[in-house]
């Protein structure tokens, strides 16, 4: 089977059998449930707060979600591969630290540093991928170690929260077109890119490796290269997330990325992507990321302490993992029957 052949099976193929209602439910549930939760949350939020259903509110919520969504986009790719990337927190912190200390007055210095940050993200991710693919080390231990390394580097560059991001850079996101802000357009572009990417040779290969590395390898997928590319993309997205985050905070922080590690995994898993790899995609992750932001908004509107947000997030995450494990198990049982 060629690597670019469309529709590489995500589960063992069951030929000549019509899909029963159960099978259709199994396919729809992972992506349907997060959007259902999202709709319910929007409804709750809308009933508590005036003017939720406006473009202004959409822009506000999108700006609040985009950093997480970018990190989670990278995390989606890695989890689809069957891995996990804990180092995104370190890369994100390090990138904001560099940006807040090196951008200077803006202009050409800043342009060079933006390019450098993107390259650092790609490189950091590629190193993770290399260690995992070629030394055959466990993804979580490699990225746990590089999380520590990049966090240390972030502290080195910027010991405490602060630094300055030039006004010209921060102001750039305030532009709008047809009433939609830059961040909203970025989400639309991101979804568009995904629609294209999932059909590319790399996109299909990533899901193939996630479904079964051995089968992918035997089918001629260059698994090592695919692994490196997937982690490199995750690093890249962490750096891009930092480039957006600094427009919101106008400063850097050596610890800011740590909040995004669990939340990015949570956005992916709540979005219905399986931690076993191969199943899911960015469509669900978008819902997952917005769900997490809306939970914080609803908690805020109800004027409950914001300390409750992580409790709700953590609980929802574990529930989602549980639901995924169960659908995975049911899907496998059905497939082998």
């Amino acid at each position: 089977m060629e690597a670019e052949a469309p529709g590489v099976p995500q589960q063992p193929v069951v030929l000549a059998r019509r899909r029963s209602a159960g099978e259709v439910a199994l396919r729809v549930a992972p992506i349907g449930i997060p959007y259902l939760i999202l709709i319910v949350l929007v409804a709750i939020y809308g009933s508590l707060q005036e003017g939720v259903f406006s473009r202004e509110e959409l822009n506000i919520q999108t700006a609040a979600t985009l950093t997480l969504l970018l990190v989670a986009a990278g995390q989606t790719i890695v989890i689809l591969l069957g891995g996990i990337d804990l180092s995104v927190g370190g890369i994100l912190s390090f990138s904001t630290a560099l940006a807040a200390t090196r951008f200077g007055e803006g202009g050409s210095t800043m342009a060079v540093w933006i390019a450098l940050l993107v390259l650092i993200g790609l490189g950091a991710g590629a190193v993770n991928g290399f260690l995992i693919a070629h030394l055959r080390l466990q993804p979580f231990i490699v990225t746990l170690a590089t999380w520590s390394i990049w966090s240390g580097a972030a502290f080195w560059v910027l010991p405490t929260e602060g630094g300055i991001v030039p006004e010209s850079y921060v102001g750039a996101v305030n532009n709008a077109w047809v009433g939609l802000s830059v961040s909203t357009w970025l989400v639309i572009v991101l979804i568009g890119l995904w629609v294209w990417f999932r059909r590319t040779r790399l996109g299909v290969s990533i899901r193939a490796v996630g479904s079964s590395e051995t089968a992918a390898y035997l089918s001629g997928v260059p698994t090592a290269r695919v692994t490196i590319a997937a982690y490199a993309l995750s690093g890249l997205f962490a750096a891009l997330a930092a480039l957006f985050l600094i427009t919101q905070t106008a400063s850097g922080s050596p610890t800011v990325g740590n909040d995004f590690i669990l939340n990015s995994v949570a956005a992916v898993v709540i979005g219905g992507t399986s931690l076993f790899g191969g199943r899911g995609g960015l469509g669900g992750t978008v819902a997952g990321a917005f769900i997490l932001t809306l939970i914080a908004s609803v908690i805020f509107v109800l004027s409950i302490s914001s300390f409750y947000a992580p409790i709700v997030t953590g609980g929802l995450l574990i529930l989602a993992v549980l639901a995924n494990s169960i659908t995975d198990l049911v899907a496998r049982r059905r497939a082998y029957r």
Binding site: A145, T146, S148, G152, A154, F155, W156
Partner: peptide, 11 residues
């Protein structure tokens, strides 16, 4: 400083 310690932990 402790930044180095974190890097060393990782390495």
């Amino acid at each position: 400083n402790t930044a180095a310690l974190q890097i060393i932990y990782g390495l």
